[in-house]
Each structure stands twice: as C-alpha cells, then as structure tokens.
Design a protein around this nucleic acid. Sequence first.
DNA 1: ATGCAACATTGCAGGCTGTGCAATAATTGA
DNA 2: TCAATTATTGCACAGCCTGCAATGTTGCAT
Lengths: 215, 215
Amino acid sequence: MSIAEAPGLRERKRIATRKAIQHAVLQLALDRGLEHVTVEEISRVADVSPRTFFNYFVSKEAAIAGDAPDFLDEVALDRFVAGAPEGNLIRDLGSLMAEAADHASEDRETLIMRKDLHNRYPHLFALRMAGMRNFEDELSGVVGRRLANDDPDLARDPEALASRGRLVTLVALGALRHAWTSWADADKGSTVPLASVIRDSFAQLEGILVQAGRV
Amino acid sequence: MSIAEAPGLRERKRIATRKAIQHAVLQLALDRGLEHVTVEEISRVADVSPRTFFNYFVSKEAAIAGDAPDFLDEVALDRFVAGAPEGNLIRDLGSLMAEAADHASEDRETLIMRKDLHNRYPHLFALRMAGMRNFEDELSGVVGRRLANDDPDLARDPEALASRGRLVTLVALGALRHAWTSWADADKGSTVPLASVIRDSFAQLEGILVQAGRV
DNA sequence: ATGCAACATTGCAGGCTGTGCAATAATTGA
DNA sequence: TCAATTATTGCACAGCCTGCAATGTTGCAT
C-alpha cells in the first residue's frame, strides 16, 4: 500500500473506465430501476463493449455495490495495535473504521447515488457486505494483534486469540452496518459525514450493557 | 405461527419436493463442484422439470444456502421481552438464537452437507446472511420491545429505541456468524451442538462489552 | 361421488448473463 | 522505433431465469 506511485497512462485509463462504468450503471439504475437495465445499455453509456464490462465487473450488481474498502496504511494499523487512540478496544475500532471510510476516495455524487440504490435494493447492501470477506480476514488479524497486546494471557493461546479476534471483528462489522444504514436513512439533505456516524455507532455499542442489563 | 395444523397432502408434497431439490443440489455440488452443476441436472435428479425448480428457488445457490430460520413462537418471544431467562440482554439473546437454531428441523445429513459447502464456497454463506433480512427486521422489533422494557427512559424516544434495537440486532448477528463459523470449522467428528456454540459466542461477546465499558 | 375452484407442474419461447477464445489495438520500456 | 505486454473487442455458446398458457392434482362443498 504505502505511497501511490504516479500512475501511467494505462493505469489512469483503467481507473477512468472503471468509474465510467460505475457511473453509467448507477445513473441508469436510478433512472429506470435495476431490473430494467441491461449490461448492453450500461456498456453503451459507458462507451465500452459489453465484453469489456465483464472484464471489469462480474455482474451488474457488483458494479453498483462498490469496491471493498482499501485497507489502511501500516502506520495507522500499528497505532491501533499498540492501543491508540483511547485504549478502549471498541471505540478505537470505531476510529479505525471511521478513518477507513474517510480514505475511500469517491466523489460525493457517486456516494449519494449508491446510497439511494442501497435504500431501494437492500440486496445490494448485502452484496457489498459479502464482498468484504477479505477486509474481514485482514481485520481479524489486526484485531488479534491488538488483543494479544492488551492481554498477554490470551496471547499464549493462539486459537482462543484467533477466535476472539474474529468475534470482535464480526461484531464490529455489525456496528459498521448499523452506521451505514443510519447514514443512508438520514434525510437527503443531511451532511453529517459517514465517519462521525460510525464513531457514534461504536460509542453506542460500548454503552449497550450499561443501560440494558445490570446483570 | 403457534401450533402447526396437520398439513394436507398438497402441503406435504410441496415440502417433499423442496427437500428433494435441496438434497439433489447439495449432493451434486459436493460431488463435482458448484460450478459444474446445472439446473437441468439438479432437476433430473430431483425428478422435477427445470421450470419447477425455479418455482421453488430463484437460483442454484438459493437452494443450497438454506432457508432463513423460522421465527420462534410468541411465548418464547414474550418471555425474552420480559427479561428472561437471565435478565442479561446479550446472554438472553444468545439463548433465543440457540433455541431458534434447535427448532430448525433439518436432518443432520443436510446440515453437514451444507456445512461443507459453506466452507468450500464462502459466498454461499454470505448469501445466507443476505437472506436473513426479514429475520433481522423482526428481531430488531423484538429487541426494541425488550429494550423498552428494560429502560423506560429509552422507551420514551421511539427513534432512539429503534436505532438501538437495530444496533443490538446487527451486533448479535455478528456473534451468530461467529458461532456458525466456529461450528463449521470444528473437526468433522465433533458433535458439539450448534446451540451451545451459539451460547458460548454470546457469552464471550458479553465479556468483551463489559471490558470495553469499564475503561 | 361429482364438480368446481384453487393450486402445482410442465413445456416452450425468448431475452439476458457471463466466459473462452482469438484477433486487433493501445501502451510501455528499451 | 520496435518488441513485449496488456487492454479491448467481436463472436459463439452454454446456462440462467421468466412469462405464459396448457395440463394435471388437490381441496372442498354439495
């Protein structure tokens, strides 16, 4: 990951094509409904051949769903593993996710179109979550490292460590989903950034036990 | 929901056909890999026409993924809402899920075949999660009721209540996923029931949240 | 039992999806 | 400028999935 080299013409074109396709499919799906849009039309609008469409995306829905988040740079991860910024696992995870959301460099227009479509076609949302398996696995590892750092006892049992890392990760993704839908359900005019909604969801998660059951 | 009437011939046949299709697709997919199985073959093995296959399932993968869990009867839900069995939100949720898993009346053979396929084709697992939207919404409502019961203050703000209900639900589904994969990853010979793995995951989750809330 | 209404199954036609392959075109780096 | 690499495209084709109309089956009231 680290620093992005200045990409050559080839790479720039690739990115442009990718964006053109995504933009086309979002536009068309919003206009006339996902089920009435064919790959042929999308390709026409995006100015590529239908065959090329499939070189970029395996399906219509994949083009809409959006790419899985790029992972953060090592520095941010190392900070998290070491117990920053607050020393509280859940809140720190929230911060990490919020940062990741900020780094997703997509223009606001695209984001909003996707948001609408996710509202209209819930299965797209599910698809996106499904596409995060990689992210999920990487995150599990990172969380595991953090847990080992927090609790040397746990570090001595690699299996328990992995299992717990995975549990924390899956739970965190639940909170992330909550944030996503909260953000998506907000009024159209709302300008609250996704990152802060994420932080909020994680903060609430932390408080769940306090209010609900004093055991 | 309540008590199941004795189903008539029509209904019994329907169920039989459904099972036949599911069994056929599982068998074939295990044998030669999901991508080398066609609907035509499945139908031949299940002894229905290809058209009938699509009357039962919208796709090959849907037939494999398995149905969303039926919801529990009102009695069990009311008990949960009232604060049973332990008065601890997370653990009680775990019990609820464990019960639901027990009630899923599928023969062990089917369960194991699915387990293997979920291991081999992770996107099937994702598909299953995606198919749980209904369950998700219902559960959110139930959790909301429980929360209102636990915390009258919260009950006075319906929006906050709904949001929190959804958060708890999504997080719980994360724990459920954890349980599922733990169970699926276990040795083939293992006979630990899914229900107890579920309870275990939720207990761990509680530990995590408690720790987070302490700081 | 009979007949009718409701529902299930099937075949068929047809559009759309998604992939392998081989030809062509564009970009890169020496 | 030239050769290697990589991207785009057209074509052919298997398979997915749906609508529709015909044909069986089951349920139910008489």
